[in-house]
């Protein structure tokens, strides 16, 4: 029997982490701040994929497509048409949702490995478009010179710190929205589908429709992350949409703990830091990253959050918590 941590520990840790994200950045070096900003943006992306992987229970290898659609919306609209932040945000999110709506029609006919392969292929289609539709995307060279957004506020987002807070606010919005969704009756239905599709069907759920809606939400939020990503880098290229990116997002979700929203956010932060920080000190960072993945699979198949929950609630089987949402409260009646 492992010794349990005090019951409230994870919640306190989460609150502390959020506080730290709010208060600490002004004291960080600008390089670290840049990494935290990246981590926050990638967290949004990982949480969006978590809807598909963690809640619906399907592994997608095409999630970079939505990042790309959001990012290219900004790249094209901001550099060529001088569009402002809100316009690019709306277009980026809506377009990514629309792309997910089309992809969902194709991909959601399948499950398991077939779903994986179809989403992979669809992701490559978007990559190919970015690569080949040169008049629109400037192909392989990418679109550079995307200006930082101007929201008419007294501070400039060209500075690292204000932009970080913009990204952090976006993260809070995305987390809030996704949290409400996964806690809603609809969100619960996704978990039901993950656990037993056949039962959900005979209970009276139009299973495909639920998956489809979830898939579109994931795409839209992925596009949201893409919009921020483009503004952050000031640059968009097909490299953002590569299969490697999709794989990375998938690993972020798996590492953090699928079906927990904050787990994938944590996974995203860890991988961003590993990739960028460890490689400063050693060229063997790939080995370290590989070791982390293998360690996760062997010792924490439900990810970091899963492992922590096992410690804090040793009585329960490890993946009970994979549900993610709060236990229903007792309702006064």
């Amino acid at each position: 029997m492992r010794r349990a941590l005090p019951p409230g520990t994870p919640r306190i840790a989460i609150v502390l982490a959020f506080l730290l994200l709010l208060v600490a950045p002004p004291f960080l070096s600008s390089f670290l701040l840049a990494l935290v900003t990246q981590a926050v943006i990638y967290s949004i992306l990982a949480m969006s994929l978590d809807i598909i992987l963690g809640y619906i229970g399907l592994a997608s290898l095409g999630h970079a497509a939505y990042l790309g659609v959001g990012a290219y919306s900004v790249g094209i609209l901001a550099t060529r048409h001088g569009a402002g932040f809100w316009a690019t945000l709306a277009v980026g999110v809506l377009l990514a949702t629309a792309v997910a709506a089309v992809f969902g029609l194709v991909a959601l006919r399948a499950t398991g490995v077939y779903f994986l392969m179809i989403t992979l292929a669809l992701g490559m289609v978007v990559w190919g478009l970015a690569h080949r539709w040169v008049s629109m995307t400037q192909g392989d060279n990418g679109i550079s010179g995307v200006p930082r957004p101007d929201l008419g506020l007294p501070w400039s987002f060209a500075q690292g710190l204000p932009f970080y807070y913009l990204a952090f606010a976006a993260f809070l919005v995305a987390f809030g929205v996704l949290r409400v969704i996964v806690g809603s009756p609809f969100g619960k239905s996704l978990v039901g589908i993950r656990e037993s599709e056949s039962r959900m069907r005979t209970l009276g759920y139009h299973v495909w429709l639920h998956k489809y809606i979830g898939f579109m939400i994931a795409g839209g939020v992925g596009g949201f992350a893409g919009v921020l990503w483009a503004y952050y880098n000031g640059f968009v290229s097909p490299a953002d949409l590569e299969l490697a990116t999709s794989v990375e997002i998938l690993l972020m979700v798996a590492l953090g703990g699928r079906g927990t929203l904050l787990g994938p956010a944590l996974g995203a932060a860890l991988i961003v830091f590993l990739k960028n920080l460890v490689s400063v000190y050693t060229q063997r960072w790939l080995l370290i990253l590989g070791a982390v993945y293998i360690g996760t699979i062997v010792y924490a198949p439900e990810g970091i959050v899963g492992a922590v929950r096992q410690w804090t609630r040793p009585g329960e089987p490890p993946d009970v918590a994979a549900l993610g949402a709060r236990r229903p409260r007792r309702v006064a009646s």
Partner: peptide, 12 residues
């Protein structure tokens, strides 16, 4: 079942 704007806990 298709509501996604508020928590299930709000449906006593």
């Amino acid at each position: 079942k298709l509501h996604l704007h508020r928590g299930l806990a709000r449906y006593p």
